[in-house]
Amino acid sequence: MRDSLRQKAVEVCDKKIAQKGDNVGISFYAFFKNKNDTPEILMEAARWWIETHRLDHFEKAVKIKSMIEKGE
């Protein structure tokens, strides 16, 4: 996953955790605007989430943040 996407994902996780606590769930769609203006980056996130890690549609934001920070 490219660095800019990793940074954005961590920012989104931090924001969601701050708003709703450690049990908040997210999907990779949370990293994007409603308008799909960067399909290649969306697919990169989808591959990381679905193909590489076989994650459920919703996962805990703390789990995703931890995985990203570890470089998984």
Rank of each mutant, 00 (worst) to 15 (best):
M43Y: 06
L55Y: 11
I64G: 01
S66H: 15
D3S: 13
A30V: 04
N23E: 11
H53I: 13
D22Y: 07
M67Y: 15
N36E: 12
M1I: 10
A18C: 12
P39C: 02
K63Y: 14
N36Y: 01
Q19D: 00
I64L: 05
K33R: 06
F32N: 07
K8M: 14
A61Y: 09
H53L: 14
K15W: 02
V12G: 04
T52K: 15
W48A: 01
H53D: 00
D56C: 00
N34C: 04
F58L: 12
A30T: 06
V12K: 13
K33H: 00
K70H: 04
C13W: 05
D37G: 04
T38K: 12
D56A: 09
E72Y: 05
M67D: 00
L5Q: 06
D3W: 09
C13Y: 06
A46D: 08
L42D: 00
V62F: 05
A9N: 03
W49Y: 01
M43F: 09
K65Y: 05
L42S: 01
K15S: 12
L55H: 11
H57C: 05
A30D: 04
G71P: 14
G25R: 15
K8W: 00
E51W: 01
R6K: 15
R6P: 02
A61H: 03
A18V: 02
F31N: 02
V24Q: 08
A9S: 14
F28Q: 03
Q7K: 15
F31L: 15
K70G: 00
L42M: 08
V12R: 03
Y29K: 13
A18R: 11
F32W: 05
G71S: 05
E40T: 07
D3L: 13
E51G: 07
A46K: 14
E69R: 11
K60I: 09
A18S: 06
L42I: 15
A18M: 06
E69H: 09
D22W: 00
V62M: 10
M1A: 06
A61M: 02
I41A: 03
P39K: 10
S4D: 09
H53N: 14
A9E: 10
R47Q: 02
W49N: 07
T52P: 01
F28T: 04
E51K: 09
E40G: 03
F58S: 14
E44A: 02
V62N: 04
M1S: 07
R6M: 11
I50W: 01
G25Y: 11
E11A: 15
S4V: 11
T52Q: 11
A61Q: 02
H57P: 07
V24T: 03
D14R: 10
I41P: 00
I68F: 08
I41C: 02
F58C: 03
H57F: 04
V24E: 13
G71M: 11
R54W: 01
T38P: 04
D37H: 14
N36R: 12
E11K: 14
L5P: 07
D56S: 07
Q7P: 02
V24I: 13
E51A: 15
K63E: 03
R54S: 13
V12I: 15
K63S: 09
F31Y: 07
F58W: 13
I50V: 09
H57Y: 11
H53S: 12
F28I: 10
W49Q: 08
N36F: 03
E69A: 07
R47D: 01
A9T: 09
W48I: 10
Q7F: 09
S27E: 10
F31E: 10
N23W: 12
